[in-house]
Design a protein around this nucleic acid. Sequence first.
DNA 1: AGAGTTTATGAAAACATTTGCAAGACTGTT
DNA 2: AACAGTCTTGCAAATGTTTTCATAAACTCT
Lengths: 342, 342
Amino acid sequence: MIKPDIVFVAKLAGVSPATVSRVMNHPDLVHPATRRKVELAVEKSGYIRNRAAQAMHGRRSATIGLVVPTVANTIFAEVVQAFNDTVSAQGFTLLLASHGYDLDSEYRLVRKLLEHRVDALAVVGLDHSAGTFRLIAEQRVPLLALWNYLADSALPCVGVDNREAGRLAAEHLVTLGHRRIGMVFPAIFDNDRARDRKTAATAVFRAAGIELQDRWQVEVPYSIAQAKAACLELLAGEDRPSALLCANDVIAQGAIYAAARLGIAVPASLSVIGIGDFAGSAQMEPALTTVRIPAQQVGIAAGQAIVTAIGRPDPDFMIRSRVELELIMRASTGIAAEMIRP
Amino acid sequence: MIKPDIVFVAKLAGVSPATVSRVMNHPDLVHPATRRKVELAVEKSGYIRNRAAQAMHGRRSATIGLVVPTVANTIFAEVVQAFNDTVSAQGFTLLLASHGYDLDSEYRLVRKLLEHRVDALAVVGLDHSAGTFRLIAEQRVPLLALWNYLADSALPCVGVDNREAGRLAAEHLVTLGHRRIGMVFPAIFDNDRARDRKTAATAVFRAAGIELQDRWQVEVPYSIAQAKAACLELLAGEDRPSALLCANDVIAQGAIYAAARLGIAVPASLSVIGIGDFAGSAQMEPALTTVRIPAQQVGIAAGQAIVTAIGRPDPDFMIRSRVELELIMRASTGIAAEMIRP
DNA sequence: AGAGTTTATGAAAACATTTGCAAGACTGTT
DNA sequence: AACAGTCTTGCAAATGTTTTCATAAACTCT
């Protein structure tokens, strides 16, 4: 039993290969009766068209490359899912690659995706190596930055403004009267999202005349376990902050668990705010106050943007779309203790 | 500026296209000096080889298709990541598809992946439609079932024995003296993982002479929010179970949050056990007792299995690998109140 | 009924690569 | 110096599709 060709199907249907091809790609160009014959032959032979051959002809490969730091983190899983659903509905398949926050390996991954002749490429964030950019420019593949929005970015981008996220979170704490503030962030060297959030928050605190104590600033990766461990240490003594601004909800969850373990009442003695509003943040006890990043919306908008870009003939057609943030006040933040007069 | 061909590179290097091809695929067959020349030409021209053309020739496409219910759920994100890392290290790229627990759309997705001529296919679970199976058999693509292990499965599989998972969890509750037991599970109609867990647990309870009350059995999807809502209702009255066996950790987290909200002490007045040991389960307060499914190990083992299967000439080379489960006792389960004599 | 127009199909070139075969260039041995 | 063997390389066929062009058939209108 040999795998059926397009010419095998053509013979079976008594037509030419060209006609079979047309039935698959431009059904309206062929007579209904012939179409029926061909469809029958396809059915009967179990023919599955070969996208590789199709792609080789210079046609679409019908794949889109997506590069994420990791998919294991709640942060990206949701956006990947929404993005996949959106482009999948348009007939595209996702080629996934993850680099674990390593820009060098990102270059290799992008190269690999280009070898597969993806019709477009989406990457997370705006920070990428020069080599990566050069590669993509040379190949003239539409490129989209996901997750971040920046009005004056070099890349087309769909996402949220992380500076605003940092600002919203910081302003909330300031409004509640907190002045003894700790920040729990990952390394910001090659993570533009964390960097934008942190610098914006810092600026707000400075403007409010709040001095950030070095001993209350800690650096942890995006991991509940490590965030909890770090916060257990941070919150152990008497001299602790009254509020914690966390780079994202995963870290914030760790912080809340640390407080629970130490018997520190949240929000009575400690306020905690996150960024992201991940699955579970609304349900935990106390429910997490956070800046909501609508991951679904980002994924969908990005999917739509990239599909329209693929349709366009001009190679660097620019889309830029900002998804709105929203401060979600829940139970993990409250008025600073020193503000409450008896 | 035209995109460089293999013949363009060949000209630049002063050799034939065949030689360039050999440099890319069988470097040991060509003289070091020539190889150097070609590599230089590749570098200089920015040539990126076309996998589509390569795949068309009947060679490997260097892609592996992965079909999951969803990637947005912590359950699968981790295993997807480990699987991807493993096959990626061997030069393969992942073609991802998700069907949202819908077996009909699974058929279409598998078809789409086969159009791309994936070198192998991995799917989650052992329950699949007849159409899906037929399709894959016809195409002679190595197929691997991920996540589940069954000694007598029709498919090669790498994963854990879900019946054992259910058994371990149930036995733990029985050992602690619980007899008033609730179960929180998703619909088991087309989810073999949930079904295996539930039937095994039920069998254990029956053997121990425990009668399961219908009013304590609830059905919820894998969602923290819905699990919490359902458990709030289940635990509201006086007449409630002393222990909850949850289909997985996501549901168990929802249950614990519900108890916290209602002021029910865990584990003093209510024990909760999950299955999975997802990220965060160990850190939450109280830390979740659960049956650990080593997602990383499953992903890695599956990746290795599938890569070796691709190497094999025989189409249905069978691998079957069982990953071990482990009961992790933490703080969310305790001895049943009625067992404690003053 | 005939000219003009539209619609439906087929032949063949093109796409970018791999590989079996064969020939030429070396190597070492006698 | 001739021979046998081993390396290295190029030629050309093959892979499965799409698309342009041409042609034939089927309408439409006067």
